[in-house]
């Protein structure tokens, strides 16, 4: 299985003729992703350098190719529009790589697209190793297996995956959920999917300081995933002192967000927290061995 994405998922790329869109389309194709076309308004009817058909609208693309999964590489001002266009055309899965999307655009999007699974924005995408990849993750460091991975950071995720793969621990699906204030898919959304995925036998949660996603994840694990081997990691524990976060934000989330709060929440849920990425594979392997 794997979650969200498999070999048969038909992917189209919005902004396929742009520099990043074109480059990463090539890399996704090389990985084996079933990309069926792309959308660039005004370039409909052309072929990309990869030989894929280009359409003027998402509707045309979906009608002609049966595409179900959108990958967005458009500039920030057009990201919400791309999501709305896909929703209108019946697409219910989208990965938004774009960084710098206005917060209010995402507030509107998540409020007006019920039933649509959006990964990101400002994320590296997701990959079901050996099957398919949507986004910008370097495919060759992944290996098919039983570990589900969710992360808020980009490059730190690769570090963790690299360690897992070197230790022989393959992955079912890895999701980079993105670091923006409003994101389409949270840790809990992914954990719910992993819970029902027969391929996923263990989970790694890579959190960061700030927000309360990690605390929510810990609460979900305590309730629904008590027997599953899970290891967590919190990035940014030695973060250089930055400018303070908005007061109101801290009040809403009830004072959550500090590394201590996150570590304590995971420990209370029976989830060990690694001090460094390189410890994760061993900690996870031990827990996996204990549950067999």
């Amino acid at each position: 299985m794997s979650i969200f994405l498999d070999k048969n998922s038909k992917v189209f790329v919005q902004g396929i003729t742009g520099a990043e869109g074109s480059y990463h389309t090539g890399r996704m194709l090389a990985y084996g992703t079933n990309i069926v076309g792309g959308v660039t308004p005004g370039k409909g009817g052309q072929k990309t350098e990869h030989g894929l058909p280009v359409f003027n609208t998402v509707e045309e693309c979906v009608a002609a190719t049966g595409a179900t999964h959108q990958c967005i590489f458009v500039p920030p001002a057009g990201a919400a529009d791309a999501l709305f266009e896909a929703y209108e055309a019946g697409v219910r899965f989208s990965v938004c790589i774009t960084e710098g999307v206005p917060v209010h655009d995402m507030l509107r999007v998540v409020g007006a697209t019920p039933g649509m699974r959006i990964i990101g924005p400002n994320c590296p995408g997701l990959i079901s190793p050996g099957k398919s990849s949507i986004g910008i993750m370097p495919g060759h460091i992944f290996k098919e297996g039983n570990v589900g991975l969710i992360s808020r950071s980009g490059t730190l995720t690769y570090e963790v995956v690299d360690g897992l793969t070197r230790a022989g621990l393959g992955q079912s699906t890895c999701v980079g959920i993105g670091g923006d204030p409003i994101i389409g898919t949270t840790f809990v959304d992914c954990l719910r999917e992993f819970k029902n995925d027969p391929q996923t036998k263990a989970i790694v949660v890579c959190g960061e300081i700030g927000g309360s996603d990690e605390e929510d994840a810990a609460a979900f694990i305590k309730e629904h995933l008590a027997g599953t081997p899970i290891v967590a990691f919190i990035g940014g524990r030695n973060a250089p002192p930055g400018k303070s976060l908005g007061h109101a934000g801290a009040i809403i989330s009830g004072g959550f967000g500090t590394p201590e709060s996150k570590i304590n929440a995971f420990r209370a849920a029976g989830v060990p927290v690694a001090d460094r990425p390189s410890e994760i594979p061993k900690m996870l392997a031990e827990r996996m061995a204990a549950t067999v």
Binding site: L107, I183, D213, G249
Partner: peptide, 14 residues
């Protein structure tokens, strides 16, 4: 105050 709440993905009035 009005702010953006990450958990509910909605504007929050406090």
């Amino acid at each position: 105050a009005i702010s953006v709440d990450r958990t509910t993905k909605k504007p929050a009035i406090i």
